[in-house]
Simulated scan of single mutants.
Amino acid sequence: MRTHTVRTVVTLAAAAVLSAGLATASAAPAGQPSPSAGHGASHKPVLVDCFWKPQARPDAFILACGDANSRLSSLHWSTWNGRSAVAKGVNFVNDCKPYCAKGTFRSYPVIVRLDRPEPWKKDPKVDHFTRISLVFTGARPEGYDRVMTTPLWD
Rank of each mutant, 00 (worst) to 15 (best):
V9Q: 02
V10C: 12
V10A: 15
V10Y: 09
T11N: 12
T11C: 12
T11A: 14
T11W: 15
T11V: 14
L12G: 00
A13Y: 13
A14N: 03
A14E: 05
A15P: 01
A15R: 02
A16D: 13
A16C: 09
V17E: 06
V17W: 08
V17P: 13
L18N: 05
S19P: 08
A20N: 08
A20D: 08
A20L: 11
A20Q: 05
A20I: 14
G21D: 07
G21E: 05
G21Y: 12
L22F: 15
L22G: 02
L22K: 05
L22T: 02
A23Y: 09
A23N: 12
A23W: 08
T24C: 08
T24L: 10
A25D: 10
A25Y: 10
S26F: 14
S26A: 07
S26H: 10
A27Q: 05
A27P: 02
A28T: 07
A28C: 08
A28N: 06
A28L: 07
P29E: 00
P29F: 07
A30H: 12
A30Y: 13
A30R: 11
A30E: 02
A30N: 04
A30P: 15
G31W: 06
G31Q: 04
G31E: 07
G31H: 04
Q32N: 07
Q32T: 05
P33Y: 02
P33T: 03
P33K: 01
P33H: 03
P33E: 01
P35T: 06
P35G: 02
P35V: 10
P35R: 03
S36Q: 06
S36A: 15
S36K: 01
S36P: 01
A37F: 12
A37L: 07
G38K: 01
H39P: 06
H39S: 10
H39Q: 07
G40H: 13
G40Y: 14
G40T: 12
A41V: 13
A41D: 06
S42F: 13
S42E: 02
S42V: 10
S42W: 12
H43K: 09
H43C: 15
K44W: 08
K44Y: 11
P45S: 13
P45M: 13
P45H: 13
P45E: 12
V46M: 07
L47V: 10
L47G: 00
L47H: 03
L47S: 00
